[in-house]
């Protein structure tokens, strides 16, 4: 079915100009790092290696929307997404190989941390998740219903409570509920949440470290932040979209690009844009080391389990509000 759809649109084969073309479907957070950093670096490398030019076609969108676009026929050769689950969607459609996550990095290409952005001078003295639960602290994070990427933030808060209590879900729920009660505004995406914070709303914004470092790089202020001692390592995947590559006949180019992303050279570019490298030894020594309480999605039982426990209907996320409604009624 999808094959029929795909063959119905666009041209196939190499472009007439003689340049090699690579179509990239990525999640919005990597836009600057890709467009200004990775793509020019790879273009130079490819030229030196093969003597040929590369032309990129780039699309950036929220991770879930991007995955849906590729599923419905957007012919990206490379999918760079925020969530493993979005890649699974493409695997189920037969667009991405089932073995995409079997490599040394399990298919992951970008890394970051969930951190707390604060105001200049950290006037509310925020250092950890518990500080976000204090009275009078206004918190921002995006809505995990409308933003798949927002789930990293929620998972970090929930997970740190969960792991501190040896996997007791009630403790995770309590930690999340204590922060949620201070949330003043839930934007539709992480970028919008950051923009709301920039415009002056809130004392703290829960976001990715690389988003705050990008603010600094773009000269939009000091963007101070704190790294909670127990926080989540964000790991985002990339994979070849087999159906598109078959049609564009650019396997060699696509494979080289994916390899470049995980190579030290590619990772160093990502570090410049605020991401954490796959290999910690090439990290920027000037920034805070990885916290001792760092955990991964694997420590939380993996994405499918978290999706079921937290985000599915009747899960922990829903119970946060149903619960608060019950207490409101009791008042």
């Amino acid at each position: 079915m999808t094959q029929v759809l795909l063959s119905g649109c666009g041209s196939s084969g190499p472009t007439p100009s003689g340049a090699d073309t690579l179509t990239i479907g990525a999640y919005s957070v990597v836009r600057e790092a890709l467009h200004d950093g990775i793509l020019p670096a790879f273009r130079a490398q490819w030229k030196a290696r093969t003597g040929r030019e590369v032309r990129f076609e780039e699309s950036y969108n929220a991770s879930g929307a991007q995955a849906r676009a590729i599923r419905s026929g957007f012919d990206a050769d490379i999918a760079i997404l925020s969530l493993e689950g979005d890649m699974t969607l493409l695997v189920k459609q037969g667009l991405v190989k089932e073995s995409w996550d079997k490599g040394p990095n399990r298919g992951m290409v970008t890394r970051s941390l969930v951190v707390i952005g604060v105001r200049d001078g950290n006037p509310k003295a925020i250092v950890d998740w518990s500080d976000l639960a204090r009275e009078g602290v206004a918190v921002l994070y995006p809505d995990p219903k409308s933003s798949g990427g927002a789930r990293w933030n929620i998972n970090a808060i929930y997970g740190s409570g969960l792991l501190a209590a040896q996997g007791d879900r009630a403790a995770g729920l309590a930690q999340l509920a204590s922060v949620q009660k201070n949330v003043v505004n839930m934007d539709a995406s992480g970028r919008q949440s950051m923009a709301t914070f920039d415009r002056g709303t809130g004392d703290a914004v829960v976001t990715y470290e690389n988003e705050l470092l990008l603010q600094r790089k773009l000269g939009r202020g000091a963007a101070p932040y704190v790294v909670p001692n127990s926080t989540l390592l964000i790991e985002s995947p990339a994979a070849l979209v087999e159906a598109s590559i078959e049609r564009h006949r650019n396997r060699q180019l696509a494979e080289a690009f994916l390899e470049f992303l995980t190579s030290n050279e590619g990772q160093e570019v990502l570090v410049k844009y605020g991401f954490r490298p796959l290999d910690p030894s090439i990290d920027n020594p000037a920034r805070p080391p990885l916290p001792t309480g760092l955990f991964t999605m694997k420590d939380l039982g993996g994405w499918p389990k978290i999706k079921k426990d937290v985000y599915d209907a009747g899960g922990i996320w829903d119970s946060l509000f149903i619960g608060s409604q019950v207490t409101n009624r009791g008042k």
Binding site: A62, G64, A65, K145, S146, S147, G148, A188, Y311, A313
Partner: peptide, 12 residues
């Protein structure tokens, strides 16, 4: 409308 948007984005 925001509920609708959220449910679409989260697969419902």
């Amino acid at each position: 409308p925001m509920y609708i948007f959220g449910e679409i984005e989260s697969g419902n």
